[in-house]
Design a protein around this nucleic acid. Structure first.
Lengths: 337, 337
DNA sequence: TTGTAGGCGTTATCAG
DNA sequence: CTGATAACGCCTACAA
């Protein structure tokens, strides 16, 4: 593998000049530039970005940690981040935390060792030690899908509390009084936790007493929703509607409900959260709270780049979400036995 | 930011020793080791993997190029790759080619500059220039979701021809004679192309004459399937079954078919390809050819690591796929008007 | 406009 | 078991 030294020798110039034609071609006379470029071709010169990063102390790489790239929401925001990053000639290293704090901490550490210029984290624990240590080091990072509205850390997300409230309100307005919630585990997703709070508040505002048997926490996965719905329907006093704290859970719930013989949406209304694309393609199509995942990725990347550029003061951006009413939620009807 | 020099000074040893306690702690006396470790803590030493890579000429990073991380199959194999890689302390840089050759070429180039140790590519063009140049440079890489069964390039995939054949055969065995195919564009996905060949062969083997109006090429996206099915149903002689060359297309087709008033699966049988998880959660649940995406990722990574380790001779692995029969395909019935 | 030379943080090779 | 020192490929003052 040839280096700028080889090129320099071949072109009869110094390595500095070669470096210049690479980084600021206009600063070198066009004749010299031509010679150098020709020499580069001749020895099939390949630029070494690592060596560059080593001296400039910029790797032009950012680290991205998502809970699980398998979930379409995260794939979507990842896409937004990547598109934005590649526009700026930045690469992204991807890591999955699987909603586990220790894995997340490990990833952060590895990425730091790799000298990433910044970090975008969809964290399992916004107040965890690694976040704090990042802050102490003044390392540029932003939290994505965040519930944080102020403070020292940059964050982009939506108001999950409000989202939970609106989802529940939608069901209430359809006449439902007995409303279950299938939620991602609180100890692992504060998003889920906030949505639950919104749910509770909405119930209270509408004089529906909170029933703790109507909350189920589970893994964020299709299968989780599927099992939980069955558990709900085993109850003496079944819910007539369910709020699932993400779409995957909701899709699973639809499946599970069918498996125990329910007719949807008549027998059970289901609302999701996220607004993944596939949710509009299933039957019944899923009513959901849609968050702008792709845009969130873009904005998250943008915020990060600000931080990287001028060590800006922390920024929080709360994006708008939208209730998308589809077929999976309908007016409450007293069941006829 | 402190370096091993600082640590060395503080501990009263040489940098070589510090390096040793990092890389092979057992090669240094435990007393010295203790001193060094203590010193590392004191100056909050952070290891610089970039510098290491610079001298060892290993970045411990591989590049992964997928068409679009948004498609659950690719997310799934990505997960397989990542799990395998992180087990070996390797990070992965992700890039989306969007099925475009020039973007793919650009990504390969950038990754090479970044000194990745290897490349996993789900390519838009298995015979393109960048692949050949990789080969010339003896650079370790493997093609994923490949249709290649022999030759100089390492590849992991399934037999798409056979897959297309079996999908079609399933429909034929259900009595369908007029079978449409919605395919990803051939100029961009040779997988799709091979599946189509299998489709054609199967028709011929069953004395069904090939009708070119029954092939539609489109973008690999939900919307593509949705539009194409409508186009098919506008035909004078409609198909009674459709083979979609991936599940996203099929899910889109289901949606589209409903929108024009068809009752599924009675009015139209639909079979997909890939076996993404969500396909079993929709209604009607999707019959499909399931390929082991996660495993493919793992195996792909494994093959790559072989290449990286001992510049092994090229390896091709054809994995097994499986026809999963679900609700979306049913026995052909003469339509009653 | 171009060249010289030092340095970035780590590892590897030899001695000791 | 430990230390000195020369790389690695590139960038960037500074000098010419």
């Amino acid at each position: 593998m040839s280096t700028i030294h080889d090129v320099a020798k071949l072109a009869g110039v110094s390595t500095a000049t070669v470096s210049r034609v690479i980084n600021s071609p206009d600063k070198v006379r066009s004749i010299t530039r031509g010679k150098v470029q020709q020499a580069m071709e001749m020895c099939r010169y390949k630029y070494n970005a690592l060596a560059r990063g080593f001296v400039t102390k910029k790797s032009n790489t950012i680290g991205l940690i998502v809970p699980n790239i398998n979930n379409p929401v995260f794939a979507e925001s990842t896409l937004g981040i990547q598109d934005y990053a590649s526009q700026h000639n930045i690469q992204v290293i991807l890591g999955n935390s699987y909603y586990q704090q220790d894995l997340e901490a490990g990833l952060i550490n590895t990425f730091l060792e790799k000298q990433v210029d910044g970090l975008i984290i969809t964290t399992a624990n916004p107040k965890g030690g690694q976040i704090k240590s990042l802050l102490d080091d003044q390392f540029p990072f932003v939290q994505l899908y965040s519930t944080i509205k102020k403070g020292p850390v940059s964050a982009v997300g939506i108001d999950n509390y409000k989202g939970g409230y609106e989802a529940t309100l939608h069901l209430v307005e359809l006449g439902h009084r007995r409303i279950g919630m299938i939620a991602g585990r609180f100890n692992v997703s504060d998003r889920s936790f906030h949505r639950w709070h919104g749910y509770k508040k909405c119930l209270r505002d509408n004089d529906i007493s909170y029933d703790s048997s109507l909350l189920l926490q589970t893994d964020y996965a299709l299968s989780g929703g599927r099992e939980c719905v069955k558990q709900f329907m085993g109850l003496k006093k079944r819910p007539s509607a369910i709020f699932c704290s993400n779409d995957y859970l909701a899709l699973g719930a639809i499946k599970g409900a069918r498996e125990i013989g329910l007719v949807l949406p008549q027998d059970l209304s289901i609302i999701g959260f996220d607004g993944i694309q596939i949710a509009s393609y299933v039957t019944p199509s899923l009513t959901t709270i849609q968050q702008p995942a792709y845009e969130m990725g873009k904005i998250g990347a943008d915020v990060l780049f600000q931080q990287m550029a001028d060590g800006n003061k922390p920024v929080q951006k709360m994006l708008d979400f939208k209730l998308i009413t589809r077929e999976s939620t309908v007016q409450y009807k007293v069941p006829n036995k």
